[in-house]
Every structure is written in structure tokens, then in C-alpha cells.
Design a binder for these strands. Structure first.
Lengths: 355, 355
DNA sequence: TTATTATGGGTAAACGCTTACAATTATGCT
DNA sequence: AGCATAATTGTAAGCGTTTACCCATAATAA
């Protein structure tokens, strides 16, 4: 937009009438069509009129009404984002990535929280489609066939972030991180440190979310490197501190032989697990090593600091937004694909090498 | 909204035409005015027609177009929110509070990040007013006279969250927490534990943000309880771990007599400061006590766990949204007031009593 | 019965923009 | 110069709602 000093009139609140394209047209002594044209630079307008119009726009500080524009163009430059919990740093960072590219590309973002509840997810989907969004970024808990069916009903592109469809098909474009591979890499890393007995505190038992993928990766790693997985080495939790603590207790109490390393599927669970180990008088990492998941702010500041796998949520948000916006703007619906964001093992004090 | 099983036609994407009020009117064999009336329950419509219309709405799964509606009513049920950084848990939680009441009251929220940059704040203000929002929640870095002037220019209510105006007037409604009092209370709490030498690591030197208010509260407390404040007891930082670490170093190196307690103006700085103290071989809390600020997720999981003051950001967000929406809906502009959210001292392991 | 008033429902005019089409003017070519 | 054609600009028809205004009908009162 051009730089200009418009006349700043101070009106008492509420008494101001928005300046419309008509006012600008009058001021510039042209038709409203011409004003519209210079704004959208569609057809050529003679330089002379272009100048007059731009001057008028500046002088009157004219801003086109997005509602009127959207009503006719059927485009709003707005995208909807559904996340479970914006206060969860993971989604905070993801959202930040999304915001950053949307802001750069002139898109407005509407953020909705689903609290991870299926019912709310559905009602938000409804609500957002009323809002006339141009596209949707969806970070759901369990993206099953029914949900995808519904999302495909809308007339705007939908992109899944963070999670893939849980039923083994790809009907929607997806940007995610490879939970399976990340867990595998954690196992591999621990193996490279000489660990042979590795236990896991995974996500909720019957869900199709990240926890399960991570568990799969763990199992694949254990198999690959020829390690035993006693029953007691697999625990489930809800990603909370408490779940980590009690998960570790059960491992401690029920293992015939204590593992030398624990993989927790969230940093918070790792911290909880470490706490239990400490309470039992184990020294970390000498007697037992710990790894978390996500590389949240927490992990840097525990004692010992927590080894983990960094998921680049910011970049994930960025890529998701970019991909969606591309989809919106050139509208071609190619074969839906899953794009993975690379992750990285972060080595900190909580992992020691064993002989 | 009524519950009903509408006929779910599956259309290939893009080929679907939204159903309009006109379609509904035809289906119900009434005029579009009547349809509009039953939706907005303005004038009474006979029960018979009401029924017919509702049936038609359900059957066709009609959703009124918010753009068209907004264009004519000049209300969008949308509010704008400006925060510096959504990935900062403080703002994450604040936003969650805002979202929760907005969702309940049927408002859509548009979130914008300013990165704490003045320039971006201004351009967001512009952009949001284009978006035809009904109200604005603003969490700015330094809310000075000029900024407030600009915000008053808009024709929708604006409410400040988190911060008061920095020039000692109240021209805008505000929901905030009492940083000054909270810091004072920290001092009081430490005094009650027998501490007599208390240092502070405050916010950036020349700013008008929370850090400064907290410093004021600290100074007031120190005076109230008759304690000396040597020059070296006041340090500034940018709320980061690093700033805490180096702030503590300077206190350690430059104090004639080491303080027995440190108040850091963020949990993260407190953690950094604790780290330095540990590195110098001091035991926490026996030799030196620490307090943070905010009660972020971090504070619970450090060793020792961090005493701090809990700011109820979620409730702050809730109250802010509620207040703003009230302002929007009954439009009366009473005298702008500042509402404070109560805070609470959280005692954890990082503070010991001295004899 | 007829005049008077409620009351429900339809018509059409906004709201502020984009854009197809028509009208006008300028340009290029014999 | 005279015509075809291209480049500009204006006119007006929507986009999908809400709502002021008017008309028809039913209800009430005299």
C-alpha cells in the first residue's frame, strides 16, 4: 500500500461513517468501477486516473469493506485453524508458525479450540464453514474416516496438521512429523549409547494419536536391534507429569530386570518418570537414562536436562500454512500427499552411555 | 439450533452451490423476509409458517451467509485479539481464556501476533479494523498515549488486557493483574520467612511494561519493611533464562553482602539465576532462596521447585472477553475502568526460612 | 353491520463491493 | 480522411442478507 498522510479527523466514537468506494469515486471524479479497478489492478487504467484514484484513497484513508468484497468474490483471505489446546506449547508454537506465513501472505486466521473432544471438533467444522473461510488447517485427535468424509464435504481445501488419517489412507493433504521414525530414532540413539534394556511410556491405550505411532516406532526399533520387550516395559499414559510418575512406578515395580533407559512419549511424562526414579533413590543418568518427546521449553531446564527429540512445530505450522495457501490460490487438487517435517535427536544430561 | 437429519448430498468439491435464504423460502413456500424473521425472531411469525420454515432450513441444511448478514447489520460477532507471542505460555493461557468465553457466546476470534514490535502493532490495528471486527482485545508492550489515540479512532470498543496504559491515565477499559502488588506481596512473603536482604532481577531497563511495575512493587515493599536496597540488588533482564543467569552473576559479583533471597520477574529468569547460584556452589534454598513470576508450567518441575506468584491468566482472558462482549452488546460507554485479577503466592521448595 | 385496529406476511430497497457489458475515445491502417 | 480495432471508462446487475414499509386479513368495538 502506498504511503501517505491522510487527513486524520477525530470523531467521537460511533458517529463515524466508514468511507466507501463511492466516496472515493466522487473525490477522484471517476466511477466506482474505476476505483475498484485500480485497487485490484485488473484491467489497465490510464496513469492519470490511477493517480487521481490513489490520491483520493490516501486522502480519505479508504479501506475496502471485506464483507462486501467477500460476498461477491467468494474469497475472504481467511483460514480456519482447529487445534485442541492453544495453551499447550506444542500448539502454541505450531500456531505461531501458521500465523507467521498467514500474516506475510495477507491471510487472516481464525483459531478454534476443540479441547480434543470429538463433538466440539464437529461443531467447529460446522461453525467454520459458516464463516466463509478459504481453507482449513485441522489438528485433530483422531482423524477417522467419518471425520474426513465430513471435511471433504466443504468447498474449500482442508489440510491435516500434526496427524495423519488414522485409517491408513490419505484422502487429505497432510503436513506432519514422523512420530514413528522419531521414536525409532530414539531407540537407535539409545542403542548407540550402549543401552540394551529400554522401556517406553506411551500415549493413551486405545487411541490413534501420536502416542500409538511412537509406540510402533519403538517396537520397530527394538525388533531391528534385536532387543527383548518384556510386557512390563510398555506402559501407557496421558502425556501428563502424573502419568509419567505412575508409569515409571509400574515399570519399577513390575520389571524382572530394570531397564537402563526409558523413552517417554512427552517431555512432561519423562520429567514425571525421572521424579519417581529419583524418589526411589536412583541416580540419573548413571543408573537410568531418560528421553522425552517434543523438546518443549521444559526439557532444557530440568536437572539433569532432558534428552529428547525435537519436533519442529514452528516449521510444521509454516509448511502447513504455505501448502494450504498454495492449494487455495492455484486451486489444483492433485493427489493428496503427506509431507513430513524432519526431527532431530537432542542429547542432554539425562542420557548416559553404558559400558 | 434445531436438531434434524438433513439430506446429505455428497457433491464433488467445488461444484456445490451454497443454499441461500431464497432456496429456503421457495421450499417453505414463503417469502425470504419470513425466513429471515424466523431466524432472527424479530417479528412474530405464525407457528404454522415457523414450522414450515424451520423444516426447510433443516432439510436443506441452510446456514446464513455471515458476510451478507454482516454487510447489512454492521455486526460480525467477531473480535480481534492482538498479543505479542502466542507461543509464550502466558499468552497461550490468556488466549485460551478468551477463546473459551468467545466460543460460549458465539463470537469468532481473530488472533494476531505483534512480536512485541510497535510497528507491527500499528499495522495490525489497521488490518483488524478492515476486518470489520466488533471489538478488540489488545495486549501491547507499551500502551502509550499515541497508541491509545489511534485505538480510540475506531468505531468498536477496545479493551486492554495484561497491561494498563503507561502514562497514568485510564482512557480505555482494562483487565490486568496487579504487577505492583504481586511484587510487593512477594517481598512481604519473603519477609515473613525472615529474609532481610532481597535482590530483584527486573524487566528491561527503559520500558513501561510489567517489569517496571514489578520493580515498583519491590521497592515499595523494601521501603515498607525498612530494608536497604543496595545498588547491586537491582538488575535488569529480558525475562530469558540467560538474563536470569547473568543477572545473578552480577548480583553475586557486585554485592558487598550476598542477598538471602532473589525475586526474578519471570520464572525463566529465576531458573537461570538458580542455575548460576548452583554453579557457584550455593545450595538452594538453604543458602539462597528464589522466587519467580507467573507460575508457568516450568516452575513446578525444577529442582527445587520454584516458589512464584501465580497470575491467573486464564481468568484474566475470560474476564477480558466477557467485559468486551458486554461492551459490544449493550454499547454503553461508561467511564473506563481497570479491573484487576487476583494473584496468589505459590510456595515451593526454592524458598527457605532464615532464622 | 361497519369502522378501527392489530397482526402476519410480502415487496423492495439497502449494505459496499466486483465485473460483464455497453459506450466512448484513441489508435492504427489503408 | 475513413474505417476497423483496441484501449479506457461508465452503467448496472448482482452477491445474500435485513428491515422499513405497505397490504391483506382477522379480530375487536361500536
Amino acid at each position: 500500500m502506498l504511503q501517505c498522510a491522510h487527513e486524520e479527523k477525530v470523531f467521537p466514537r460511533g458517529e463515524r461513517m466508514a468511507v466507501t468506494i463511492e466516496d472515493v469515486a466522487r473525490e477522484a471524479r471517476v466511477s466506482i468501477a474505476t476505483v475498484s479497478r485500480v485497487m485490484n489492478s485488473s484491467k489497465t487504467v490510464s496513469p492519470k486516473l490511477q493517480q487521481r484514484v490513489n490520491d483520493a484513497i490516501c486522502k480519505m484513508n479508504f479501506r475496502p469493506n471485506v464483507l462486501a468484497r467477500g460476498l461477491i468474490t467468494k474469497r475472504t483471505s481467511t483460514i480456519g485453524v482447529v487445534v485442541s489446546d492453544i495453551a499447550n506449547p506444542v500448539f502454541g508454537v505450531l500456531t505461531k508458525g501458521i500465523n507467521s506465513v498467514c500474516q506475510a501472505k495477507g491471510y487472516t486466521v481464525i483459531i478454534c479450540e476443540s479441547d480434543g473432544k470429538r463433538k466440539k471438533e464437529l461443531s467447529l467444522l460446522e461453525k467454520l464453514s459458516e464463516q466463509k473461510i478459504d481453507g482449513l488447517l485441522f489438528a485433530g485427535v483422531d482423524v477417522d474416516r467419518d471425520l474426513v468424509d465430513r471435511m471433504l464435504l466443504h468447498d474449500y481445501p482442508v489440510l491435516l496438521v500434526t496427524q495423519e488419517e488414522s485409517y491408513g489412507e490419505t484422502r487429505l493433504n497432510t503436513v506432519a512429523h514422523d512420530n514413528r521414525q522419531a521414536a525409532f530414532d530414539e531407540v537407535e540413539f539409545l542403542v548407540s549409547c550402549g543401552h540394551k534394556r529400554i522401556a517406553i511410556i506411551s500415549g493413551p491405550e486405545n487411541d490413534y494419536s501420536s502416542g500409538t505411532r511412537r509406540l510402533e516406532g519403538y517396537l520397530a526399533g527394538m525388533e531391528q536391534f534385536g532387543m527383548e520387550v518384556p510386557h512390563a516395559y510398555i506402559r501407557h499414559g496421558d502425556f501428563s507429569f502424573k502419568a509419567g510418575y505412575s508409569g515409571m512406578r509400574r515399570i519399577y515395580e513390575e520389571s524382572a530386570q530394570l531397564p537402563t533407559a526409558i523413552i517417554a512419549c512427552s517431555d512432561l511424562m519423562a520429567i514425571g518418570a525421572m521424579q519417581y526414579a529419583r524418589d526411589m533413590g536412583l541416580t540419573i543418568p548413571e543408573q537410568i537414562s531418560f528421553m522425552g518427546f517434543d523438546d518443549s521449553a521444559l526439557s532444557r531446564y530440568t536437572t539433569p536436562s532432558l534428552s529428547t527429540v525435537r519436533i519442529a512445530y514452528f516449521e510444521e505450522g509454516e509448511l502447513a500454512a504455505k501448502t494450504l495457501i498454495n492449494g487455495i490460490e492455484d486451486g489444483l487438487c492433485d493427489q493428496p500427499t503427506v509431507r513430513y517435517i524432519p526431527h532431530m535427536i537432542i542429547r542432554r544430561g539425562s542420557v548416559a552411555c553404558v559400558e
